[in-house]
Write a protein that binds this DNA or RNA. Structure first.
Lengths: 248, 248
DNA sequence: GATAGGTTGTCACCTCATTGTCATTTTTGA
DNA sequence: TCAAAAATGACAATGAGGTGACAACCTATC
C-alpha cells in the first residue's frame, strides 16, 4: 500500500507541494564532513527521500550492499577508500544505480575521467539544494526503465507523463504542468466522478484552496487542447451538480 | 451492511452540504490536550464522522481494539505510551487502518522515521481543519480497494455510485446528482420506512427545507426511470401516512 | 358504504444554482 | 525584468429541481 503512495508525479516541483506521505526511496550519502552530512540529509528528506549517511568509503560500500539505495551521492574526497575507487566498485556491484558526485569547485575536475569511473552526474560545491536534488532525481528517472515509456492512450490522444509530452492525432500538443497533473489524475480515476474539491485536494494540494472556478478553467483548457469539439466534450464530461468524469 | 453505508458518495460536495445523519464511520482521536480534543472532535463531526477520543496511549490502544475505527488521528506527544510506540502497535494489530500523525511544528519531525513507524500521513500543527480532514479522507480512500467498483444491483437495475451511472435491463439510464443521492440512501436503508422529513434531512440536508412535494417529485422521477411500471411501483413503495420504503 | 379530510401522484412552469467562457489580474519562473 | 501560467472575477447559458395547482387516492368515522 505504501508502495502505491510513493508513486509520485515526477514532473511536479515538490518544494512547495504538500508532502507525499511515504518516502520516495532511499538515497545513500557518502560524505565525511559532518556539517555537510547534515545539510545533505535535510535536503533530501525535504524532497521526501529516506537518507542513509556513510562517513567514509568503507561504510559507504557496506551500506550500499545492505540497503541497495535508489541513488548515491558521493563526495570525492574521502578517508580510507577514495571516492574514485568507491565509485568504480559501486558500479561493478550495481551498474544501474545512479551515482552523483560532489566535488569542490577548487578541485580541477576532469569530467571525462569522472564519468569513466562510472559517475552519472556531478555537482560542484557550493551547490544549490535545488540543483543537487534535480540532478539526482533526473538520474533516478533516467535509470528507471528508459526503454519503457509510460504512455497513456485514449481516442486519438497519446500522453507521455514521464516526458510530459502529448499528441493528438500525431500532432504535438503543449500542456502545462497543472494540466498534466490534472489529466493524470483523471486517467488514474477514469470513469469515476470526481468532485471539484477532490480534484483541488489531489491535484492542487491539501493546503491550497483556489476558487472552484479554477478547476473549471483547467478543464476548459484540457478540453480545448484534447477534445475534437471542446463544446461537446466526449472524454472530459461534466456531471451537473457533482463534478467531472473522464471516460477514455 | 454498515460497511456499505460508510461508502460515502464522493461526488457530493460535503463541505457546505448539510450533514447526513448516518455516520461515515468512526475516527479514533488520540490526544491528551483537552482543548485540542474538542477541536478535533468538532472537525470530524462536521464531516459526518463519529469520533471517539482517547486521552493517552493506553486508552487509545484499548479503544482501538474495541472499536476498530476507520482511521486514527494520533498526537505524537502522549503520556504513558509514546505516540511512536502506539503507532507501531496499532500497525501490528491492523496494518490496513490508516494512521495520521499530528506533530507540532516546533518538533523536529523526521518525516521518514514517522512513516517507517507505520504512519500513513502526517499533519503539522497548526493545521487547517480542511487539510486534516482531506488527508484523513484521502488515507481512508487509499486504504479501500482502489479498483473495487461499488455497484448495487436489484431487480433488473444496476447502479454504480462511483461512476454515477445506472442501467436498467442493460440500457443506460440517466440520473441526476440528487436522484443518485436519494437512491443511495434508499439502498442503504432498504426495507425500512423513511419519512419525508428523514429523507429531507439526510438527502437534502438539515438546514434546507423545501416543500414535501419536492420529495414526491424525486420519487416520481426515480420511479419513472427505474420502475417497469411507474404507476405500480414494485421497489419504491409509498407507505401511506408515513413515507416511502425501498424493497430490492 | 359513503363521505370528509388529509395524503399522495403528477404535471408544467419558473427560479436559481451550477457551469462555460472570456478578460483581467496576480503569481511564478527564467 | 519579462513572459508564461495560473487564479480570479464577471457574465451568459444551461438545466436541475423546487413550487404550486390540481387530480387521484387512502383511511377513518359515521
Amino acid at each position: 500500500m505504501m508502495a502505491e503512495m510513493t508513486e509520485d508525479m515526477d514532473f511536479v516541483d515538490e518544494t512547495d507541494a504538500p508532502a507525499p506521505a511515504a518516502s520516495l526511496g532511499t538515497i545513500l550519502v557518502v560524505e565525511d564532513d559532518p556539517r555537510m552530512q547534515k545539510v545533505l540529509r535535510r535536503v533530501f528528506v525535504e524532497e521526501h527521500y529516506s537518507v542513509i549517511v556513510a562517513g567514509d568509503g568503507q561504510a559507504g560500500l557496506d551500506l550500499f550492499r545492505s540497503e541497495r539505495p535508489l541513488a548515491v551521492v558521493l563526495d570525492l574526497i574521502l578517508p580510507h577508500i577514495s571516492g574514485r575507487e568507491l565509485c568504480q566498485k559501486l558500479k561493478t556491484i550495481a551498474p544501474d544505480t545512479p551515482i552523483i558526485v560532489l566535488s569542490a569547485i577548487t578541485e580541477v575536475v576532469d569530467k571525462v575521467l569522472l564519468l569513466e569511473l562510472g559517475a552519472d552526474d556531478y555537482v560542484t560545491k557550493p551547490f544549490s539544494p535545488r540543483e543537487l536534488t534535480a540532478r539526482v532525481q533526473a538520474a533516478i528517472r533516467r535509470q528507471r526503465k528508459p526503454t519503457a515509456p509510460s504512455v497513456y492512450r485514449f481516442a486519438d490522444c497519446e500522453i507521455d507523463f514521464q516526458k510530459m509530452s502529448a499528441r493528438r492525432s500525431g500532432r504535438a500538443v503543449v500542456l502545462t504542468a497543472h494540466e498534466f497533473k490534472l489529466l493524470k489524475f483523471f486517467t488514474e480515476n477514469a470513469e469515476r466522478v470526481l468532485t471539484r474539491e477532490r480534484l483541488l485536494n489531489e491535484v492542487w494540494g491539501y493546503n491550497f484552496y483556489p476558487t472552484t472556478r479554477t478547476v473549471d478553467n483547467q478543464i476548459l483548457k484540457l478540453r480545448q487542447k484534447l477534445e475534437p469539439d471542446p463544446a461537446n466534450p466526449q472524454h472530459l464530461l461534466t456531471i451537473y451538480g457533482a463534478g467531472y468524469k473522464f471516460v477514455p
